[in-house]
Design a protein around this nucleic acid. Structure first.
Lengths: 201, 208
DNA sequence: GCTTTAAAAAGTAACTT
DNA sequence: AAGTTACTTTCAAAAGC
Protein backbone atom coordinates (compact mmCIF):
# COMPACT_ATOMS: atom_id res chain seq x y z
CA UNK A 1 0.00 0.00 0.00
CA UNK A 2 2.48 2.73 0.06
CA UNK A 3 2.51 4.97 -2.86
CA UNK A 4 4.51 7.34 -0.74
CA UNK A 5 7.43 9.07 -2.34
CA UNK A 6 8.44 9.45 -5.97
CA UNK A 7 9.61 6.53 -8.08
CA UNK A 8 11.73 6.38 -11.21
CA UNK A 9 12.96 3.97 -13.82
CA UNK A 10 16.02 4.27 -16.03
CA UNK A 11 14.99 4.26 -19.67
CA UNK A 12 18.18 4.90 -21.54
CA UNK A 13 21.89 5.12 -20.90
CA UNK A 14 24.22 6.84 -23.35
CA UNK A 15 27.90 5.95 -23.09
CA UNK A 16 31.08 6.55 -25.01
CA UNK A 17 33.66 3.84 -25.58
CA UNK A 18 37.23 4.50 -26.65
CA UNK A 19 38.79 1.64 -28.60
CA UNK A 20 42.06 3.56 -28.97
CA UNK A 21 42.59 2.42 -32.56
CA UNK A 22 41.77 3.78 -36.01
CA UNK A 23 39.07 1.81 -37.74
CA UNK A 24 38.41 1.20 -41.42
CA UNK A 25 34.71 1.93 -41.50
CA UNK A 26 34.42 1.16 -45.23
CA UNK A 27 35.73 -2.34 -44.64
CA UNK A 28 33.57 -2.87 -41.58
CA UNK A 29 30.50 -1.67 -43.45
CA UNK A 30 31.16 -4.24 -46.19
CA UNK A 31 31.70 -7.13 -43.82
CA UNK A 32 28.90 -6.37 -41.37
CA UNK A 33 25.51 -6.93 -42.95
CA UNK A 34 23.65 -5.08 -40.22
CA UNK A 35 25.86 -2.04 -40.47
CA UNK A 36 24.52 1.24 -41.77
CA UNK A 37 27.12 3.63 -43.13
CA UNK A 38 26.44 6.79 -45.11
CA UNK A 39 29.46 9.04 -44.62
CA UNK A 40 27.78 11.80 -46.62
CA UNK A 41 25.00 11.87 -44.11
CA UNK A 42 26.85 11.07 -40.89
CA UNK A 43 30.52 10.20 -40.19
CA UNK A 44 29.71 7.30 -37.90
CA UNK A 45 28.88 3.70 -38.80
CA UNK A 46 25.62 2.60 -37.17
CA UNK A 47 25.27 -0.86 -35.66
CA UNK A 48 22.10 -2.10 -34.01
CA UNK A 49 22.49 -5.01 -31.64
CA UNK A 50 19.50 -7.14 -30.86
CA UNK A 51 20.58 -9.15 -27.83
CA UNK A 52 20.42 -6.24 -25.53
CA UNK A 53 18.67 -3.82 -27.89
CA UNK A 54 21.42 -1.28 -28.16
CA UNK A 55 22.61 0.94 -30.98
CA UNK A 56 26.19 1.94 -31.51
CA UNK A 57 27.76 4.73 -33.50
CA UNK A 58 31.29 3.76 -34.48
CA UNK A 59 33.78 6.35 -35.66
CA UNK A 60 36.96 6.31 -37.71
CA UNK A 61 38.96 7.31 -34.66
CA UNK A 62 37.95 4.23 -32.73
CA UNK A 63 35.57 6.07 -30.50
CA UNK A 64 32.00 4.89 -30.23
CA UNK A 65 28.71 5.89 -28.68
CA UNK A 66 26.34 3.26 -27.32
CA UNK A 67 22.71 4.11 -26.67
CA UNK A 68 19.60 2.27 -25.60
CA UNK A 69 20.81 0.38 -22.52
CA UNK A 70 18.44 0.30 -19.55
CA UNK A 71 21.08 -0.80 -17.07
CA UNK A 72 24.84 -1.09 -16.67
CA UNK A 73 24.72 -4.84 -17.24
CA UNK A 74 23.19 -4.50 -20.69
CA UNK A 75 25.70 -1.81 -21.47
CA UNK A 76 28.64 -4.02 -20.50
CA UNK A 77 27.28 -6.94 -22.46
CA UNK A 78 26.74 -4.73 -25.46
CA UNK A 79 30.30 -3.45 -25.33
CA UNK A 80 31.61 -7.01 -25.13
CA UNK A 81 29.46 -8.01 -28.06
CA UNK A 82 30.61 -5.01 -30.07
CA UNK A 83 34.27 -5.72 -29.34
CA UNK A 84 33.86 -9.34 -30.39
CA UNK A 85 32.00 -8.32 -33.51
CA UNK A 86 34.70 -5.88 -34.52
CA UNK A 87 37.46 -8.39 -33.80
CA UNK A 88 35.69 -11.07 -35.81
CA UNK A 89 35.60 -8.72 -38.75
CA UNK A 90 39.18 -7.68 -38.91
CA UNK A 91 39.49 -4.80 -36.49
CA UNK A 92 42.20 -5.11 -33.87
CA UNK A 93 40.49 -3.64 -30.86
CA UNK A 94 41.19 -4.12 -27.12
CA UNK A 95 39.09 -6.54 -25.07
CA UNK A 96 37.97 -4.17 -22.37
CA UNK A 97 37.98 -0.60 -23.60
CA UNK A 98 37.27 2.42 -21.46
CA UNK A 99 33.52 3.04 -21.11
CA UNK A 100 32.06 6.31 -19.84
CA UNK A 101 28.39 6.95 -19.10
CA UNK A 102 27.54 10.34 -20.59
CA UNK A 103 23.85 10.64 -20.00
CA UNK A 104 21.06 8.78 -18.25
CA UNK A 105 17.40 9.29 -19.09
CA UNK A 106 14.81 8.21 -16.57
CA UNK A 107 11.04 8.40 -16.42
CA UNK A 108 9.38 8.80 -13.07
CA UNK A 109 6.23 9.46 -11.14
CA UNK A 110 5.63 11.84 -8.26
CA UNK A 111 2.30 10.10 -7.56
CA UNK A 112 0.63 13.46 -7.22
CA UNK A 113 -0.68 15.94 -9.77
CA UNK A 114 1.31 19.12 -10.25
CA UNK A 115 0.00 22.66 -10.64
CA UNK A 116 2.37 23.63 -13.44
CA UNK A 117 1.22 27.25 -13.61
CA UNK A 118 2.08 27.77 -9.97
CA UNK A 119 5.25 25.71 -10.14
CA UNK A 120 6.71 27.68 -13.03
CA UNK A 121 6.21 30.88 -11.06
CA UNK A 122 7.97 29.56 -7.99
CA UNK A 123 10.83 27.54 -9.46
CA UNK A 124 14.00 29.18 -10.71
CA UNK A 125 15.14 28.08 -14.15
CA UNK A 126 11.77 26.72 -15.10
CA UNK A 127 9.86 27.18 -18.32
CA UNK A 128 6.29 26.18 -19.07
CA UNK A 129 4.87 26.89 -22.50
CA UNK A 130 1.82 24.66 -23.06
CA UNK A 131 1.49 26.15 -26.52
CA UNK A 132 4.64 24.37 -27.52
CA UNK A 133 5.09 21.48 -25.11
CA UNK A 134 2.84 20.05 -22.36
CA UNK A 135 5.60 19.65 -19.82
CA UNK A 136 7.30 22.16 -17.55
CA UNK A 137 11.04 22.21 -18.23
CA UNK A 138 13.04 22.49 -15.05
CA UNK A 139 16.80 22.89 -15.01
CA UNK A 140 18.00 21.71 -11.64
CA UNK A 141 21.35 23.05 -10.56
CA UNK A 142 22.49 20.21 -8.36
CA UNK A 143 22.52 17.57 -9.43
CA UNK A 144 22.86 19.24 -12.84
CA UNK A 145 19.94 17.63 -14.66
CA UNK A 146 16.91 18.72 -16.61
CA UNK A 147 13.51 17.44 -15.59
CA UNK A 148 10.34 17.54 -17.64
CA UNK A 149 7.37 17.73 -15.30
CA UNK A 150 3.84 16.95 -16.45
CA UNK A 151 0.52 17.82 -14.91
CA UNK A 152 -0.09 14.15 -14.18
CA UNK A 153 2.93 14.00 -11.92
CA UNK A 154 4.88 11.90 -14.41
CA UNK A 155 8.39 13.19 -15.05
CA UNK A 156 11.42 12.65 -17.25
CA UNK A 157 14.89 13.28 -15.88
CA UNK A 158 17.80 13.63 -18.28
CA UNK A 159 21.36 14.81 -18.22
CA UNK A 160 22.45 12.73 -15.24
CA UNK A 161 25.80 10.95 -15.35
CA UNK A 162 24.98 8.44 -12.62
CA UNK A 163 21.94 6.69 -11.25
CA UNK A 164 22.66 8.30 -7.93
CA UNK A 165 22.15 11.72 -9.49
CA UNK A 166 18.79 10.58 -10.85
CA UNK A 167 17.69 9.34 -7.44
CA UNK A 168 18.87 12.52 -5.75
CA UNK A 169 17.27 14.79 -8.33
CA UNK A 170 13.91 13.06 -8.26
CA UNK A 171 13.73 13.07 -4.48
CA UNK A 172 14.86 16.67 -4.33
CA UNK A 173 12.29 17.69 -6.92
CA UNK A 174 9.57 15.95 -4.95
CA UNK A 175 10.58 17.73 -1.75
CA UNK A 176 10.75 21.09 -3.48
CA UNK A 177 7.35 20.78 -5.11
CA UNK A 178 5.82 19.51 -1.91
CA UNK A 179 7.34 22.45 -0.06
CA UNK A 180 5.94 24.84 -2.63
CA UNK A 181 2.53 23.32 -2.15
CA UNK A 182 1.98 22.54 -5.82
CA UNK A 183 1.42 18.80 -5.44
CA UNK A 184 -2.11 17.49 -5.31
CA UNK A 185 -3.46 14.04 -4.71
CA UNK A 186 -6.92 13.19 -5.98
CA UNK A 187 -9.27 13.09 -3.02
CA UNK A 188 -10.41 9.55 -3.45
CA UNK A 189 -7.14 8.21 -4.77
CA UNK A 190 -4.61 8.76 -2.03
CA UNK A 191 -3.46 5.19 -2.13
CA UNK A 192 -3.79 3.76 -5.60
CA UNK A 193 -2.58 3.97 -9.13
CA UNK A 194 -3.23 0.37 -10.06
CA UNK A 195 -0.26 -0.06 -12.36
CA UNK A 196 2.51 -2.58 -11.96
CA UNK A 197 5.58 -0.51 -11.36
CA UNK A 198 6.76 -2.24 -8.24
CA UNK A 199 10.10 -2.81 -9.89
CA UNK A 200 11.22 0.80 -9.90
CA UNK A 201 13.38 1.10 -6.78
CA UNK B 1 34.08 53.31 -52.28
CA UNK B 2 36.42 53.50 -49.35
CA UNK B 3 35.25 57.00 -48.56
CA UNK B 4 31.63 55.93 -48.73
CA UNK B 5 32.33 53.06 -46.31
CA UNK B 6 34.13 55.38 -43.94
CA UNK B 7 31.27 57.83 -44.01
CA UNK B 8 28.74 55.12 -43.36
CA UNK B 9 30.85 53.63 -40.60
CA UNK B 10 31.01 56.96 -38.94
CA UNK B 11 27.29 57.61 -38.91
CA UNK B 12 25.93 54.08 -38.77
CA UNK B 13 27.30 51.30 -36.62
CA UNK B 14 26.57 47.61 -37.20
CA UNK B 15 24.32 47.87 -34.19
CA UNK B 16 22.26 50.57 -35.88
CA UNK B 17 22.22 48.75 -39.21
CA UNK B 18 20.98 45.59 -37.53
CA UNK B 19 18.35 47.48 -35.60
CA UNK B 20 17.07 49.17 -38.75
CA UNK B 21 16.83 45.82 -40.50
CA UNK B 22 14.86 44.45 -37.57
CA UNK B 23 12.56 47.47 -37.58
CA UNK B 24 11.88 46.96 -41.29
CA UNK B 25 11.18 43.27 -40.73
CA UNK B 26 8.82 44.05 -37.86
CA UNK B 27 7.05 46.64 -39.97
CA UNK B 28 6.62 44.05 -42.71
CA UNK B 29 5.22 41.54 -40.20
CA UNK B 30 2.89 44.17 -38.82
CA UNK B 31 1.27 44.89 -42.15
CA UNK B 32 1.14 41.28 -43.34
CA UNK B 33 -0.17 39.88 -40.07
CA UNK B 34 -2.19 42.80 -38.87
CA UNK B 35 -0.37 43.10 -35.57
CA UNK B 36 -1.32 46.18 -33.49
CA UNK B 37 1.26 48.96 -33.34
CA UNK B 38 1.78 48.69 -29.54
CA UNK B 39 2.95 45.10 -30.02
CA UNK B 40 5.44 46.15 -32.67
CA UNK B 41 6.74 48.91 -30.44
CA UNK B 42 7.17 46.44 -27.59
CA UNK B 43 8.91 44.06 -29.99
CA UNK B 44 11.32 46.82 -31.02
CA UNK B 45 12.16 47.41 -27.37
CA UNK B 46 12.77 43.71 -26.82
CA UNK B 47 14.94 43.55 -29.93
CA UNK B 48 16.92 46.57 -28.75
CA UNK B 49 17.60 44.83 -25.44
CA UNK B 50 18.59 41.67 -27.28
CA UNK B 51 21.04 43.69 -29.37
CA UNK B 52 22.52 45.30 -26.27
CA UNK B 53 23.06 41.92 -24.70
CA UNK B 54 24.50 40.68 -27.99
CA UNK B 55 21.95 37.92 -28.27
CA UNK B 56 21.59 38.46 -32.00
CA UNK B 57 25.15 37.34 -32.77
CA UNK B 58 25.14 34.38 -35.10
CA UNK B 59 21.39 34.45 -35.50
CA UNK B 60 19.24 35.79 -38.27
CA UNK B 61 17.55 39.15 -37.90
CA UNK B 62 14.29 37.56 -39.11
CA UNK B 63 14.28 34.84 -36.45
CA UNK B 64 15.10 37.20 -33.62
CA UNK B 65 12.59 39.79 -34.83
CA UNK B 66 9.88 37.14 -35.05
CA UNK B 67 10.74 35.88 -31.57
CA UNK B 68 10.63 39.43 -30.22
CA UNK B 69 7.24 39.99 -31.81
CA UNK B 70 5.92 36.70 -30.43
CA UNK B 71 7.08 37.71 -26.98
CA UNK B 72 5.74 41.26 -27.35
CA UNK B 73 2.27 40.08 -28.36
CA UNK B 74 2.13 37.84 -25.30
CA UNK B 75 3.32 40.62 -23.05
CA UNK B 76 0.65 42.90 -24.49
CA UNK B 77 -1.86 40.16 -23.78
CA UNK B 78 -2.65 39.73 -27.46
CA UNK B 79 -0.98 36.37 -28.14
CA UNK B 80 -0.46 35.10 -31.67
CA UNK B 81 0.34 31.37 -31.93
CA UNK B 82 3.97 30.73 -32.80
CA UNK B 83 2.94 28.48 -35.66
CA UNK B 84 0.89 31.30 -37.15
CA UNK B 85 3.68 33.83 -36.78
CA UNK B 86 6.16 31.46 -38.36
CA UNK B 87 4.08 31.34 -41.55
CA UNK B 88 5.02 34.95 -42.22
CA UNK B 89 8.77 34.66 -41.65
CA UNK B 90 11.45 33.00 -43.67
CA UNK B 91 13.06 31.83 -40.44
CA UNK B 92 12.19 28.29 -39.38
CA UNK B 93 9.91 27.52 -36.45
CA UNK B 94 12.84 25.84 -34.75
CA UNK B 95 15.03 28.91 -35.07
CA UNK B 96 12.34 31.31 -33.88
CA UNK B 97 11.53 29.06 -30.92
CA UNK B 98 15.20 28.94 -30.00
CA UNK B 99 15.47 32.73 -30.11
CA UNK B 100 12.36 33.03 -27.97
CA UNK B 101 13.84 30.71 -25.32
CA UNK B 102 17.04 32.72 -25.42
CA UNK B 103 15.12 35.96 -24.89
CA UNK B 104 13.18 34.38 -22.03
CA UNK B 105 16.40 33.33 -20.31
CA UNK B 106 18.61 36.30 -20.96
CA UNK B 107 16.29 39.27 -20.67
CA UNK B 108 14.72 40.21 -17.37
CA UNK B 109 11.29 40.12 -18.88
CA UNK B 110 8.13 38.62 -17.51
CA UNK B 111 5.97 36.96 -20.08
CA UNK B 112 2.54 36.15 -18.68
CA UNK B 113 1.64 32.49 -18.56
CA UNK B 114 -0.34 31.68 -21.62
CA UNK B 115 -4.00 32.11 -20.84
CA UNK B 116 -6.66 30.45 -23.01
CA UNK B 117 -9.04 33.33 -22.26
CA UNK B 118 -6.87 35.56 -24.42
CA UNK B 119 -7.60 33.38 -27.44
CA UNK B 120 -11.34 33.86 -27.18
CA UNK B 121 -11.60 37.32 -28.71
CA UNK B 122 -9.86 36.36 -31.93
CA UNK B 123 -12.12 33.34 -32.36
CA UNK B 124 -15.17 35.42 -31.50
CA UNK B 125 -14.21 38.11 -34.00
CA UNK B 126 -13.72 35.64 -36.81
CA UNK B 127 -17.00 33.89 -36.12
CA UNK B 128 -18.81 37.12 -35.16
CA UNK B 129 -20.03 35.79 -31.86
CA UNK B 130 -22.01 37.79 -29.33
CA UNK B 131 -20.68 39.23 -26.11
CA UNK B 132 -22.94 36.84 -24.25
CA UNK B 133 -21.21 33.86 -25.81
CA UNK B 134 -17.81 35.32 -25.03
CA UNK B 135 -18.78 35.83 -21.40
CA UNK B 136 -20.02 32.26 -21.15
CA UNK B 137 -16.82 30.95 -22.73
CA UNK B 138 -14.68 32.87 -20.26
CA UNK B 139 -16.72 31.41 -17.40
CA UNK B 140 -16.22 27.91 -18.78
CA UNK B 141 -12.46 28.40 -18.98
CA UNK B 142 -12.28 29.76 -15.45
CA UNK B 143 -14.15 26.78 -14.13
CA UNK B 144 -11.99 24.43 -16.18
CA UNK B 145 -8.89 25.92 -14.63
CA UNK B 146 -10.32 25.46 -11.14
CA UNK B 147 -11.17 21.88 -12.02
CA UNK B 148 -7.51 21.35 -12.87
CA UNK B 149 -8.02 20.01 -16.36
CA UNK B 150 -6.04 22.60 -18.31
CA UNK B 151 -2.47 21.57 -17.45
CA UNK B 152 -0.35 20.99 -20.52
CA UNK B 153 -3.15 21.67 -22.95
CA UNK B 154 -2.80 24.04 -25.88
CA UNK B 155 -4.61 27.25 -24.83
CA UNK B 156 -5.95 27.66 -28.37
CA UNK B 157 -7.65 24.27 -28.20
CA UNK B 158 -9.12 25.00 -24.79
CA UNK B 159 -10.44 28.35 -26.00
CA UNK B 160 -11.95 26.83 -29.13
CA UNK B 161 -13.80 24.18 -27.14
CA UNK B 162 -15.02 26.68 -24.55
CA UNK B 163 -16.37 29.00 -27.22
CA UNK B 164 -17.91 26.05 -29.04
CA UNK B 165 -19.77 24.98 -25.91
CA UNK B 166 -20.81 28.54 -25.12
CA UNK B 167 -22.17 28.91 -28.65
CA UNK B 168 -24.11 25.66 -28.41
CA UNK B 169 -25.67 26.83 -25.19
CA UNK B 170 -26.76 30.00 -26.95
CA UNK B 171 -28.35 28.21 -29.84
CA UNK B 172 -25.57 28.71 -32.33
CA UNK B 173 -25.31 26.05 -34.98
CA UNK B 174 -21.77 26.29 -36.25
CA UNK B 175 -19.67 23.12 -36.36
CA UNK B 176 -16.64 22.09 -34.38
CA UNK B 177 -14.61 22.57 -37.52
CA UNK B 178 -15.55 26.25 -37.70
CA UNK B 179 -14.15 26.75 -34.23
CA UNK B 180 -11.13 24.59 -34.94
CA UNK B 181 -10.22 26.63 -38.02
CA UNK B 182 -10.76 29.91 -36.21
CA UNK B 183 -8.48 28.77 -33.39
CA UNK B 184 -5.89 27.14 -35.60
CA UNK B 185 -6.21 23.61 -34.20
CA UNK B 186 -7.81 20.44 -35.56
CA UNK B 187 -11.39 19.30 -35.04
CA UNK B 188 -10.03 16.34 -33.14
CA UNK B 189 -8.47 18.65 -30.58
CA UNK B 190 -11.65 20.70 -30.22
CA UNK B 191 -13.64 17.51 -29.78
CA UNK B 192 -11.26 16.13 -27.15
CA UNK B 193 -11.30 19.36 -25.14
CA UNK B 194 -15.06 19.59 -25.56
CA UNK B 195 -15.56 16.12 -24.09
CA UNK B 196 -13.28 16.85 -21.16
CA UNK B 197 -14.88 20.19 -20.41
CA UNK B 198 -18.43 18.88 -20.66
CA UNK B 199 -17.62 15.96 -18.39
CA UNK B 200 -15.62 17.85 -15.78
CA UNK B 201 -18.01 20.79 -15.59
CA UNK B 202 -21.20 18.76 -15.94
CA UNK B 203 -22.27 20.86 -18.85
CA UNK B 204 -25.48 19.79 -20.51
CA UNK B 205 -25.78 20.97 -24.04
CA UNK B 206 -29.26 21.49 -25.44
CA UNK B 207 -30.18 18.91 -28.06
CA UNK B 208 -31.32 20.92 -31.01
C1' DG C 1 24.55 25.22 -35.40
C1' DC C 2 23.68 20.69 -38.13
C1' DT C 3 23.91 15.59 -39.13
C1' DT C 4 22.75 10.40 -36.06
C1' DT C 5 21.36 7.22 -31.86
C1' DA C 6 17.82 6.10 -27.88
C1' DA C 7 14.10 6.91 -24.54
C1' DA C 8 10.22 8.68 -21.72
C1' DA C 9 6.53 12.05 -20.80
C1' DA C 10 1.50 14.36 -22.93
C1' DG C 11 -0.37 16.94 -26.54
C1' DT C 12 -1.29 17.67 -31.24
C1' DA C 13 -1.32 16.48 -36.21
C1' DA C 14 -1.85 13.77 -40.31
C1' DC C 15 -3.12 9.75 -42.51
C1' DT C 16 -5.89 5.03 -42.77
C1' DT C 17 -9.41 2.16 -41.88
C1' DA D 1 -14.41 8.14 -34.65
C1' DA D 2 -10.69 4.88 -33.70
C1' DG D 3 -5.89 3.52 -34.82
C1' DT D 4 -1.34 4.23 -36.30
C1' DT D 5 2.62 6.85 -36.99
C1' DA D 6 5.15 10.81 -36.10
C1' DC D 7 6.51 15.19 -34.46
C1' DT D 8 7.15 18.79 -30.24
C1' DT D 9 10.71 19.04 -25.54
C1' DT D 10 15.04 17.56 -22.68
C1' DC D 11 20.32 15.29 -22.69
C1' DA D 12 25.27 13.78 -24.11
C1' DA D 13 28.97 12.00 -26.98
C1' DA D 14 31.17 11.05 -31.41
C1' DA D 15 33.70 13.66 -36.47
C1' DG D 16 33.13 16.98 -39.73
C1' DC D 17 30.86 20.48 -42.23
Amino acid sequence: MSTTGPTYRIENIVATVNLQVELDLEMLAERLAMAEYNPDQFPGLILRLTKPRISALIFRTGKMVATGAKNEEDLKNAVRALVKLLKDHGADVPFDPEVQVQNIVASGNLHAEVDLEQAVLMLENAMYEPEQFPGLIYRMTNPRVVILIFGSGKIVCTGAKSERDVATAVQKLYNQLKELGVLYVEEGAEEEESEEELEEL
Amino acid sequence: RLRKWQTRARVQTSYERNFIQAAQELERLKSSMGVPRPCVEQALEIYRQALEKELVRGRSVEAMAAAALYMACRMMRMPRPLDELVRYTKASRREVARCYRLLLRELNVKVPISDPVLYISRIAEQLKLSGEVVKAAIDILQRAKKAGITAGKDPAGLAAAAVYIASLMHGDNRTQKDFAVAAGVTEVTVRNRYKELAKALNIKVPVK
